[in-house]
Design a protein around this nucleic acid. Structure first.
Lengths: 234, 234, 234, 234
DNA sequence: CATGAATGAGGGTTCATTCAT
DNA sequence: CATGAATGAACCCTCATTCAT
């Protein structure tokens, strides 16, 4: 292979990789800053500082605050879906799927404080962008209703309540100490709402969850590590 | 009455009245601005403009954004409680009280778009300051549980879910068109969660609500009127 | 005496007295505030607060910051002259007069911390307005020179050096701890400059000074008392 | 030299130079503004205007008024020391060193009106920051005392008096017309204070001083030029 | 005259964004 | 593409001053 061809092949590739690394670094920093300062605050200076990038460079990757927020949300959404799907995908029973999916979602937030703080800071604004997470719920609920396992509440109502409950639950887990079975308590309430008996509820909440460990180079893992390091510095 | 006494009595009184009017004007404007721009934004310039007051004057009444938000929240909380208590106060049955109280709360937000937008914009932050509204709920829930009318879910969990459901419901009513019985549907879900049968739910939701009309010089009425006038201007 | 006449006589008099009291209260407060915040700072709000007077009233007495400063300076100048003259007036020998006058001036500042801080804060600006204090010095110096007791340095030069030395000395006494004979050391330097031998210097500095106690209702006494009370509050 | 190396070398260097020029421009303007308005005033807007820079840029270089003052003082201190040391460095006799150093200091202020006005405006505050200038005095005084050339006054006292005399002298030279030998008169007073005879004084003050000309791109020269240009504009 | 609310000018500071290098 | 200085708009806040009561 002649040198010229190699260059033409090589240079763009490393450039693209560099670009991708930088982008990840910015998203990582943004998640931390959003979690700390809220999603309405002026984050660009902090993000730039945290990512150790020049002000000017930032604008090669994102144009607005909103852009950043969307990027963080999308990435998190993807990673959460992947983790939860891995745990839930094999389950056939819609009731168990719904229950386990919710549990995973809440336990994930509970074990990842940074995630919880980000979601809590984002509030409804982020929750709506996270709708990917709720994409799976309607289908399962509908299936459960058709099978007569769930009471016949309007789907939108159930989704609204679930979203609200989730948001408040995450906010509570982000801010204070919550018992280990706090997620189960919330899910239990949801299942009662859906018409399950106490015995049924107990049964679907009984199985122990698989570990939900984000991949080492996922946004979740990297941002959490960075935030921990930062906290240790102080 | 001697002139001197009249002066001593009169002058401070009119001064205090003027002060109070100005304060109300600012709170009114603030509610509108918060509803429009969110509670995290820099509202002071807009509030000042909306109230047609000088920047300097503002600081004779409030020092920070947060101060303003607290004042609006407190005033709204008071007015909402008063309206709802008027409708619910006479009810003895805890189940009916809970159901009717929630319906009132949601219908109030549904009929007062500005209120809904303010509460939605405030999110959890305002919801927590509004806790006065939720002060009544725990007692009724507990009474209902003790009488065996409500299932024995942990109180905090029920409150968290109710708060979340309320928040999302308000947000939905603020943003889009919701059917007239949307509040009843949400309350129905809550009552199912609390273990009521479909028949019981139907029964407690059957009574028609009294009109919830804010007093003409309440913050709710004045701000809504101002916002309407403003909208008409455009 | 008919009532009407009494009124015409009485009312203006009490009014004038009230006015005078208020004026004194403001000057008092101003001295404290100037001593604390410097003469360039915005003192009106603090003065008004310290004097417990309304903003509006202030402008019935003084129009500018400068006015206030001048008033304080003038009043202090008068009081200092009176105290020092009382101690020095009887002395016939110009050398002893000069030495004792300077000692009095410095000891007064040393015993009245508030005075020292005010003069130090004022710097040259106040020193110039205080020129009344230096009105006595030239005559004595000239007499001393004519009698051959002082070396024949140009009068303006001696005054410049004395003013500067006095200012720095006061500033040092205002800020830190100075030994009890610090004033004598400064005066000794001045006398050496004026050509006195060490023995002569020792002799004129030997006499003990009379106590320099400001009258109880003088500005000096009242302001110092207020400043002490204020300090005790914290 | 390869292109890459040139770039890596060149770009940061020109950037640093630009930065340094801007910094100098601000310090220059600050010196003029301080000299005009005093060191306690709000100078930032004026400095920004004088330097023809945006408000925002200012904060890339200095954060507070005080920062600016310190920077101007430090730079002036350096330049004055350099000029004076050049004139005094070779002198072995401490008495002659002290006398000549003081003369230089005062003549410098007398020939540089802007410097005099800045130092006078700064008063004790700047004088203390200028302490570098007074760093040389104590050693020489001590040496002179040990050799018996100076009377045995306490060193701190002599320094206080010298500082005060210097300050007042500078203030006088800044404000009005002073005779060409005004500095010598002041120094003469100091030397008398230190116990020298009239003959000795005359002898150490006899030598003519070398010219004290600030380097063309020194702060002193540039600011003076700017101030002159400004004055010519009006 | 006393009061204190209202005012608007002005100072201090941050930030998103641009642009020459 | 990376950099970081420069910019100016916008925000926060204080203060001197006025004026109706």
């Amino acid at each position: 292979m002649p040198a010229a061809a190699k260059n033409q092949d090589h240079r763009p590739r490393v450039a693209a990789e560099r670009r991708e690394r930088m982008r990840k670094r910015l998203i990582e920093s943004a998640m931390i800053v959003f979690a700390e300062k809220g999603v309405g605050a002026s984050v660009i200076p902090d993000v730039v500082a945290a990512a150790e990038v020049s002000q000017g460079s930032f604008y090669n990757y994102f144009r607005t605050n909103e852009d950043l927020l969307t990027a963080v949300s999308a990435e998190l959404s993807d990673e959460m879906i992947q983790l939860i799907e891995a745990a839930v995908g094999e389950i056939a029973d819609p009731v168990l799927r719904v229950a386990t999916g919710m549990r995973c979602y809440l336990h994930l937030a509970r074990s990842q404080k940074l995630l919880a703080r980000f979601l809590a800071a984002g509030g409804l604004r982020v929750l709506n962008q996270q709708s990917a997470v709720f994409r799976y719920l309607p289908a399962d609920l509908e299936e459960g209703q058709q099978r007569g396992d769930f009471a016949a509440l309007p789907l939108e109502i159930v989704l609204d309540v679930a979203a609200g409950a989730g948001l408040v639950a995450i906010s509570r887990m982000a801010n204070g100490r919550t018992p280990k079975d706090y997620p189960e308590k919330i899910v239990s309430a949801m299942l009662h709402m859906l018409g399950l008996t106490a015995a049924q509820v107990a049964s679907v909440l009984a199985p122990s969850l698989p570990k939900l460990v984000p991949d080492a180079d996922s946004l979740l893992a990297r941002a959490q590590a960075r935030a921990d390091a930062q906290a240790a510095d102080e």
